[in-house]
Design a protein around this nucleic acid. Structure first.
Length: 435
DNA sequence: CGGATTTGACCGGCGC
DNA sequence: GCGCCGGTCAAATCCG
């Protein structure tokens, strides 16, 4: 019996628990002295994923005088079966690890392929969790990642996704053409969310000669970042101060779209639009536009500012500065404020952990799904297992509707960080995250 | 009473 | 030219 319990404890830690058929068929005979183990056993099994069906048939002993030999025989059979299942679980674990490695290799190859073809990422779609595929159908073409996305979607994990558009204000014709094309595309698709999130921009891939001569001032770059996150409140608290100046029911979505203006500083051009996703009302789609003209409050940066300016900056292909892809922390955009760089990007992992401490929960229930699927965010997963996340996820368990801006900032920064790693074709190793 | 929110009106772009 | 639509304005209203 002790070996049986030990096995189940070990197996449950691997999240692969299979009760041998012999147990189900013959029943788990327990002597009265072993009943205390049953509760422990059941408590342990309660952590097993619900998809795994467990059958434990408890058959109470009629009396202590049963045939001791038959019990010992059954125990022997059980132990033999346990050993067999143990070996099987080991094999399964190896299969999972091998699959994970293959996925990482494929991901690295994909990134390398994209960089080889010089295909600039025109829209960033970061997702912690799933269901972004519903709004980013074009991404379904990516085989490996789309499968992961689909799998995550099926599990209905909490989601944060981010998309990015950048425009050059000094090229209004191009901007207008793009917007017109966007609307055209929206009509073609005629989906309820055809204009949401904004379709990827299509800026021309300049000739190398043009790269040297065509210098777009980052300060005048018009950026737009769309963030999708599960949020129960009317809006995400990103740490900035916003004033609502309008509300409109957009065509195709009965949920009204709210318009906010940054009021941290007078004349700040940054605006944001907030709208519920039609397909999943629990998802709040927030689109930020513009760049703040003021220092941001601590922790208000990743979504409110850094995500727009910084993400736009480093995601734009820059042949003259390869580090623009690989190292966003360098901040070659001179318009960055130091605060935005620090809390938004400099240490997303640290922000994550700090934001997840008890009592600092967020209203927007953004769950880093890597907790359950570490291969979805392989470079962050190790941090989720940190003591900060122990004993339940505060992002989920929160009943406090007030949020700390650090939460959103950290999630966005972490999501962006994850994207950066994937884009660079290599994974961030532990220890490098806080460099 | 001052700031924030609501909500109908207004404006400009776009397609027909 | 007209209607539709997204975005913005501003007066009215709400609220602490």
């Amino acid at each position: 019996m002790a070996s049986l319990v030990n096995f189940l404890f070990d197996a449950s830690s691997l999240a692969f628990v299979r009760v041998p058929s012999v147990v189900a068929s013959t029943g788990l005979r327990l002597v009265s002295s072993g009943l205390s183990l049953v509760s422990d056993l059941l408590n342990t099994l309660s952590n097993v994923p619900e998809s795994l069906v467990l059958f434990i048939v408890l058959e109470s002993m009629g009396s202590a005088g049963d045939d001791r030999h038959s019990i010992e025989d059954e125990l022997g059979i059980l132990q033999a079966e346990m050993e067999r299942m143990k070996a099987e679980n080991k094999i399964l674990k190896e299969v999972i690890e091998r699959t994970f490695r293959d996925y990482q290799e494929l991901q690295a190859k994909l990134s390398g392929f994209q960089q080889q073809n010089h295909q600039p990422e025109q829209q960033v779609c970061l997702s912690l969790g799933g269901d972004q595929s519903s709004s980013f159908p074009e991404q379904k073409k990516s085989s490996a990642e789309s499968k992961e996305t689909k799998r995550l979607e099926d599990d209905k994990e909490l989601t944060l996704s981010l998309s990015l558009q950048t425009y050059a204000d000094d090229d209004p014709d191009q901007l207008e053409a793009e917007e017109a094309a966007d609307q055209e595309k929206g009509k073609e698709t005629s989906t309820p969310l055809s204009n949401w999130p904004p379709p990827p921009p299509r800026y021309a891939n300049p000739e190398p000669s043009q790269v040297a001569t065509q210098s777009i001032n980052p300060a005048t770059r018009k950026t737009r970042v769309s963030v999708r996150a599960r949020c129960q409140g009317p809006t995400m608290n990103d740490g900035c101060q916003w004033r609502k100046y309008g509300q409109k029911v957009a065509k195709g979505n009965p949920c009204p779209r709210a318009y906010y203006r940054c009021t941290v500083a007078p004349g700040c051009p940054v605006r944001k639009q907030v709208q519920r996703c039609l397909e999943d009302m629990s998802i709040l789609v927030t689109t930020y536009e513009g760049t703040h003209n003021h220092p941001l409050p601590v922790g208000a940066t990743a979504l409110a500012s850094t995500a727009t300016s910084a993400a736009a900056n480093f995601l734009l292909p820059n042949d003259a500065n390869p580090s623009s892809y690989l190292n966003p922390y360098l901040g070659h955009n001179p318009t960055f404020s130091s605060s935005s760089m620090i809390s938004g990007f400099a240490n997303p992992i640290g922000s994550f952990s700090g934001a997840a401490t008890p009592g600092s929960s967020g209203q927007h229930q953004v769950l880093p799904s890597g907790v359950k699927y570490p291969w979805a965010m392989p470079y962050l997963s190790s941090n989720y297992s940190s003591p900060h996340f122990g004993g339940g996820n505060p992002w989920l368990s929160s009943k406090d509707e007030r949020s700390t801006p650090e939460n959103v900032a950290a999630v966005a920064a972490a999501a962006i960080s994850s994207f950066i790693d994937k884009e660079s074709g290599g994974g961030r190793k532990d220890g490098e995250s806080s460099a």
